[in-house]
Write a protein that binds this DNA or RNA. Structure first.
Lengths: 205, 205
DNA sequence: GACAACATACATTCGTGTATGTATAATTGC
DNA sequence: GCAATTATACATACACGAATGTATGTTGTC
């Protein structure tokens, strides 16, 4: 019954994938550890071996989602283009279009958008929010760069601008992932983002 | 033990209020009917008398939230002002500021933003989405009125504009209700909305 | 042979739904 | 207008399943 270390790692990943599957279809609180185990072709024993409990699986999924994102933004920030706002706009479009192609990532994001951080999940609420805030701070840098280059109103407040953008992106993603099919990234994503950014770029002359 | 009809109605309302309290603090799936009953100073017997089960309480809360909203929009639409976009902008600000003052409404809205419509709640997902879509259609009318009055780009698509606005509002509300205190409606609400609407109004000359 | 990587078995808790009891308000017959 | 009856508005009690956490067993690896 005992597996080699590599095999053990594979079962851990299988459990994570199975958990994502269960959580994203039935919801966190409606998924039992037994379902997760069964779908991963193991028993609850294996689950309890690799994870302390259900909440730890939940948290592991969040890390899996969040890290690549902040990684992408950090890489993009590494080189400063002449028009930071345009750079930011294109980053947003890129992020959206990338997400559109990655089904597993979409489902994970949907999970964390729609889950309710209550009960046993409450301790993770602030934790996950803090991670998000750090990513937000990264976005703010684009606006600050733009301001230094005199590409913004003098009145414009980078913090408000970041907040505005963030609210808009959140709204888009929320609608996009809601299952309502109200938004099609391929055909409308670019338009939406551009429609939004026109408010920043073309109006301050 | 039997109460008069009026008293019975009061207990029903107490149960609803208690349920909102429980759901919004502990989450739907972490609230038991016993907790709800106890907090309402009744027993589960009373709950099962007034409601078929927990999902029906959930749905009742949604109706309680949604109806006043679409009512307000309908009333506003009833009179057409010269500048529909400005009218819409002011409606948005009004809705936000009204919400800011009504704590119970805020908590109810937060509940439906953050709950996960899975498991036993799945049947209500489409139902509640449909209600939302109908309200969205109402917003669209402002843009159509503006277009008829030649106050929009000829290229501008009311549907995309509505979608853009909706995503933005959703994002604001989501952040506002998230408990992060990132947004303060009183000081920033107007600014945010105006920042957003400037993209529509001042750029098409 | 010791420990890792599980599977199996068990105890316990919790929540739901329903069945039943009960006191009182509302309704009916006269 | 008042007793008799019935339906209402709950409270109480019970049965059942489901899920969790843990304790213990088993097998293979290092």
């Amino acid at each position: 019954m005992k597996k080699t270390k590599e095999e053990a790692q594979k079962t851990k990943e299988k459990i994570l994938a199975s958990a994502l599957d269960c959580f994203s279809t039935k919801g966190y609180f409606n998924s039992s550890l037994d379902e997760i185990a069964t779908k991963a072709a193991v028993t609850r024993g294996a689950v309890y071996w690799h994870f302390k409990n259900k909440t730890e699986i939940f948290d592991a999924l969040h890390t899996q989602l969040h890290e690549p994102f902040s990684q992408t933004i950090l890489e993009d920030l590494a080189h400063e283009e002449a028009q930071p706002i345009v750079q930011l706009k294109e980053l947003c479009i890129k992020l959206l279009e990338e997400l559109d192609l990655n089904d597993s990532k979409k489902r994970t994001m949907k999970l964390f958008f729609e889950c309710d951080y209550s009960g046993q999940l409450a301790p993770f609420k602030k934790q996950h929010q803090d991670k998000k805030l750090k990513s937000l701070k990264l976005f703010e840098q684009y606006f600050e760069r733009a301001k230094k280059r005199n590409q913004l109103h003098q009145l414009a407040d980078p913090q408000i601008l970041t907040l505005t953008l963030h609210c808009f992106l959140k709204g888009i993603l929320f609608e996009y992932l809601s299952g309502l099919e109200l938004i099609d990234i391929k055909s409308q994503g670019k338009k939406l983002i551009q429609q939004f950014f026109e408010g920043f770029n073309t109006c301050h002359k």
